[in-house]
Write a protein that binds this DNA or RNA. Structure first.
Lengths: 226, 226
DNA sequence: ATAAGATACTTGATGCATCTTTTTTGGCAT
DNA sequence: ATGCCAAAAAAGATGCATCAAGTATCTTAT
């Protein structure tokens, strides 16, 4: 069970929500982990009310599920669900990349290149957490550059659902995780929408391979257990 | 302020949430309407807790916003936001239509045709509410047929945000709202993915015209007021 | 009559008590 | 040892009291 960052947002509810989101996206929960409102309340040092608020919000976006009315858990993802999310990401991040390529300024490009440099260093240092965070930052930067906040929110929700899977899936991936980020930047520099879209799609499909393999491995285990 | 359907779900919270969703999707709130937790609690005959739960969930998906920490309102949509949502719908409903075309059974087709027949009758009867509901049912049936539940959830959230706009936008639209549904069904019958995608895209772009005009009208009014 | 300040009210956030249902546990019989 | 049933503990749902912050209203001095 992870420890959480300190609470410093607008309200306790949203602070807890933010902390839980971070924990999910960083892969600090495992599929199947059970959450208890009272336990979390103790860990956060609040009453149960703000925790409930946060849990309900997360449950609403299916980052957490109620297996039964009193059993709150991190869901495990089926292969078909992951494939669906991947297909959605291909369409939406493709749109983001296309649009970003049309409007990207040199400052935007600089920002992306900085992220990529930091990511290279994190991978060289073997800092898995930082690596996944920077990978994520790169992906979220594209809808940002494109000026598509709604799309950004949708992707954030999808990432929340994938979080528990990526915790260790990127160990074998190594730097394959970011190889496809370079063509994205090149395409943005040339304002080449089609190339930007293709590059990010490649990244999603190939970069997601280790995740798919992990899911298949886990589903095989499920089978054998039954 | 609308009246709400009776509560009959699993829990009071989700019942209230469902009722508020229905009200939003049916366009029974207007942009700018203010919600008060205590008032809603009285209307629903519950305490404030389930209402808060529902409101927080809706706020999380941006179907309602907290203008200030104590001022809960139905947001009005900017033109750029609507255009973004439309672009996202084009990608996602396009994907749903493509996939549905590959897997649709004759039972699925029958279901779509039934919806379309009912929709024709509703329009002929001048039943605006039923018309918009059936239009929505048609759109939600495609990801259902395609077996894409995540996509369905995303679209549901987007519809929640558009709900307050469509209440009267479809009056001038008349039956233009469903003209493009026929080519969709034809494409599904032929298992023609590309045609299905194109047809639904046409429907989104052309069917959404009245909504865009309403937004432009309201933004002009906003201008003049300032 | 008007404007500024003070008072009362409104309203969401938080904490907490209680209720019902589920889950766990302990003991007993096989 | 194992499986089953009952009692106890756990846990989320609901209701409600209180708090703090914002809003409206009323008073009062000019």
């Amino acid at each position: 069970m992870p420890e959480f960052a300190t609470l410093d947002h607008e309200s306790l509810s949203s602070a807890v929500y933010g902390a839980l989101c971070d924990a999910l996206i960083q892969g600090r929960f495992q599929p199947g982990d059970r959450l208890k409102i009272r336990d979390l309340a103790e860990q956060f040092g609040t009453s149960v009310t703000p925790i409930r608020d946060a849990i309900l919000r997360l449950a609403n976006e299916e980052a957490i599920t109620f297996r039964s009315p009193r059993d709150i858990r991190i869901p495990s993802m089926s292969e078909s669900r992951y494939r669906e999310i991947r297909a959605i990401r291909v369409k939406l991040e493709g749109l983001a990349a296309e649009t970003a390529a049309q409007v990207a300024t040199s400052a935007d490009i600089d920002c992306l290149e900085q992220i990529l440099r930091d990511n290279e260093r994190a991978i060289a240092d073997g800092d898995r957490l930082k690596g996944t965070q920077l990978n994520q930052a790169f992906h979220f930067m594209l809808p940002e550059i494109a000026g598509l906040p709604v799309l950004n929110g949708i992707l954030r929700r999808l990432w929340l659902q994938m979080g528990p899977l990526i915790s260790d899936a990127y160990i074998p991936g190594g730097r394959a995780m970011i190889d496809h980020h370079y063509p994205v930047i090149e395409a943005l520099k040339r304002h080449d929408s089609a190339a930007a879209c293709m590059a990010i799609v490649d990244d999603i499909l190939l970069g997601g391979k280790p995740i798919l393999e992990r899911i298949e491995r886990e589903e095989r285990l499920q089978m054998m257990r039954v």
